[in-house]
């Protein structure tokens, strides 16, 4: 396997998170569309199913993918539209990882107790 530097890892993670988010988006629109069946429809039963902890952990992973994809996307925009973006793309990638962590920690602090049922 080719072991590249920051740029390659940034690309691979952007691609993987992007494909995962696109597939999640399709699933998410389909499951929320069940609300059209009304209060007596399958919506509440379906949501109760999704509230089980493995799916809530999955949702945390989806959020992590969103935050990484967003910050690395901003890095791509800086690379494309500024004079200096490409020169500092490696540092910008560590910045994107740092920003993802900085957003992620308080989010985990809020959501992990909810999943564990100790909120």
């Amino acid at each position: 396997m080719y072991r590249g530097r920051e740029g390659q890892w940034a690309f691979v993670l952007h691609r993987l998170s992007g494909v995962a988010l696109a597939l999640f988006l399709l699933l998410h629109v389909i499951d929320i569309s069940l609300v059209m069946f009304g209060p007596e429809g399958p919506f509440n039963a379906f949501l109760a199913f999704y509230h089980q902890w493995p799916f809530r952990v999955g949702l945390v992973l989806v959020m992590a993918a969103v935050v990484y994809h967003a910050f690395n996307g901003l890095r791509i925009i800086l690379m494309d539209f500024t004079e200096w973006g490409v020169k500092y793309q490696g540092a910008l990638w560590y910045g994107a990882l740092g920003a993802t962590t900085a957003v992620g920690i308080p989010v985990l602090w809020k959501i992990v107790p909810e999943i564990l049922g100790i909120a």
């Binding site: 919506f43 949501l47 509230h51 969103v66 959501i111 909810e114």
Partner: peptide, 21 residues
């Protein structure tokens, strides 16, 4: 980010039901 804030941070996403949506 706004969507996630409204539906995962302001509330407990584990409580979302038909009435909320």
């Amino acid at each position: 980010f706004g969507h996630l804030f409204f539906n995962n941070i302001q509330i407990d996403a584990g409580t979302i039901d038909f009435a909320y949506v």
